[in-house]
Design a protein around this nucleic acid. Structure first.
Lengths: 360, 360
DNA sequence: CGATGACATGACACCGATGTCATACTTAGA
DNA sequence: TCTAAGTATGACATCGGTGTCATGTCATCG
């Protein structure tokens, strides 16, 4: 591979002049510039980042660690896509700042995070982002040197800057919108309470009910989440069967996520109930492959992954440029409700306070 | 950040000795080693890859380019996941060889590939992999220097080494398995013929029919693929409606992909037909979120993304180590049929030649 | 006309590792 | 006892760029 000296020799100038042509950091005579550019083209010269980095002490690299790319065989969430969107958001921001993203994955094994961080530090990344597969608490090995770190979709108890989805507000907004549409008996088939999203979304559900002066009815809430494993459909069937037999049955089923809603569609139809004419269904995540492809399309709440990625990258860039040692702790990012045909408007909705369909 | 000289000074040895401790490439006295290790720990020293790379001329980096991570708003395929699995396969191999993966994405804009390749070359990657969102032909700018390149899920007409899914064989195997299960009227709701997978899968469908001495009936084949856009459900409804009215209607609907199968489930049920008791459905892709969550679970063909990633990485490593300038051209990777409950066995199947459910 | 500064360019050191070669000290074998 | 081989270590050059400083050439201005 050609070096800057090869170019210099061919162009009959000094290496430093070639460097100037490359970086435009000092004026170069027109004739000289052209000679240098010709030589570069002829030799197919590409400058070495390693050498440049040594001198300038800036790598222009951001390290990203995720368990997404290779995840466990039994995924806890729709497997992979979430982080993908987060990464997309991150890239958007980094592209602007001329940073290059290095991505490594833990293969789902948390212990692999430490050596990966080490690899990144060897490359002298200027910042690190850790992206989790789903909203959760994590424990990362401390980073001894001062390299800034931002967590996305997860948090720790060291107060590391974190970007999190606002599950509570999302579920709240959805339920409030259901109420606006005239629903008052709102069932909730929840996620497991031992995951963060499960607890927070129930909080949002209850808050929205309270605001609307609807009493919380435990008979309408049940945890059927088995992480998509075998028995989940049976659990759901059982819960739904029980609820529809109530003297005052629900008019809408909120599901812990869109995947669960997909199952619920099948179950309701097997029971001979039409969606949405006889019963409404709502999901969470706005997992588009499901939400948009289902018939009828699914009302759901967007998990604002891209926005989270953007925020994470912005926060990291702020830390790198030293602007902020900023108030630590999490940043919550809320996503909009996507109102689609899976929910019936029981009475003409007054859509005043809430936005419906996508507003990107 | 501490350098090797800081460590050397603190340990009272020369930099070269520290280097020896780090790399174990020459014997070091026990006392010395311990002093060095202590100093390293105390200073939190992490060697600089840039410096190391300059000397050794080996970066240990592999560049990966994909449009997956940020893709167009209207995805042609299940959006993102595919490449994710390919990347997972690649990582598996690279981890073994101690290579670090750098990932960049084109944001769906093909023109961005060139600058990304340039960035990678600046980092002196030892090899490049380009991963496409779906099986397609691409045109990449030529890489002037000799850096090896492997294409995954795509091919060009320059004979660049490529790893491709064996769509023909996959569809063939599925249809052959349907025949084994007693189906003889096999409808095929195809993908668009202008995408590679569309053509190749039809080839496989026809080949399997021919093998079973079943005449190809054009009335059973229709292209309803609108890339998941608005009118697709109507097209599907129309085609299905027409086919079920045939004097000799199909007993099973093969769908171009799993997402289409998801739609077909809804449509068939809206028509009052039970799946699979009255009519069977099969997909393609083994897009697990759909195939496993649907009720009943969907019979489909695995798109062997992980295996393709593994192959791609292996082929690249072979090129890097110079083992092979190898017969150029594509490598086809076939995936197994996943036999689930969405297809009825019309008569006791003789499952001899074909494997069913996952065999990992 | 000489001083001043802008422009254009080069010499050289340096970033932080590692490869090469030299050196000093042991230890084993003839 | 002397030599050869092995062990342990350091001095120094080198990788390919960029930062610093010096130098030379003009055009401009008082």
């Amino acid at each position: 591979m050609a070096t800057i000296y090869d170019v210099a020799r061919m162009a009959g100038v000094s290496a430093k002049t070639v460097s100037r042509v490359l970086n435009g950091d000092a004026p170069v005579g027109k004739t000289t510039r052209e000679a240098v550019e010709a030589a570069i083209g002829q030799l197919g010269y590409v400058p070495s980042n390693a050498a440049r980095m040594m001198r300038s002490q800036r790598s222009g690299l951001i390290g990203l660690i995720t368990g997404a790319i290779s995840m466990s065989p039994e995924p806890t969430q729709p497997a992979g896509l979430p982080e993908l969107f987060i990464v997309q958001g991150i890239q958007k921001v980094l592209a602007t700042s001329g940073m290059t993203l290095m991505i490594a994955d833990t293969g789902g094994v948390v212990e692999k995070a430490a050596p990966l961080i080490d690899t990144f530090l060897r490359h002298r990344v200027e910042g690190l982002i850790y992206v989790a597969e789903y909203h959760q608490k994590i424990v990362l090995p401390a980073i001894s040197d001062g390299t800034p770190l931002v967590l996305a979709n997860c948090f720790d108890d060291r107060g590391t800057p974190a970007i999190l989805p606002d599950d509570t507000r999302g579920q709240h907004d959805l339920v409030a919108r259901l109420v606006t549409a005239g629903h008052r008996r709102i069932a909730y088939l929840t996620l497991r309470p031992d995951i963060a999203a499960g607890r927070l979304r129930v909080d949002g559900y209850r808050a929205a009910l309270a605001e609307a002066d609807i009493a919380y009815d435990p008979a309408l809430v049940e945890n059927c989440d088995l992480d998509g494993r075998e028995g989940e459909s049976q659990l759901l069937w059982d819960a739904i069967d029980r609820m529809v037999r109530l003297s005052n049955p629900p008019s809408v089923f909120c599901c812990g996520n869109d995947r669960m809603a997909l199952r619920v569609y099948g179950i309701l139809r097997s029971m001979g109930r039409r969606v949405p004419t006889e019963v409404s269904v709502a999901g969470y995540d706005n997992y588009r492959v499901i939400a948009e492809t289902l018939y009828p399309p699914l009302t759901t709440v967007d998990l604002p992954y891209t926005a989270m990625g953007v925020r994470a990258a912005q926060r990291l860039m702020a830390m790198i440029s030293g602007e902020t040692r900023e108030a630590n702790g999490p940043t919550l990012v809320a996503g909009p409700v996507y109102w689609r045909e899976s929910v019936t408007e029981l009475r003409p909705a007054k859509i005043t306070q809430l936005k419906s369909v996508r507003e990107e």
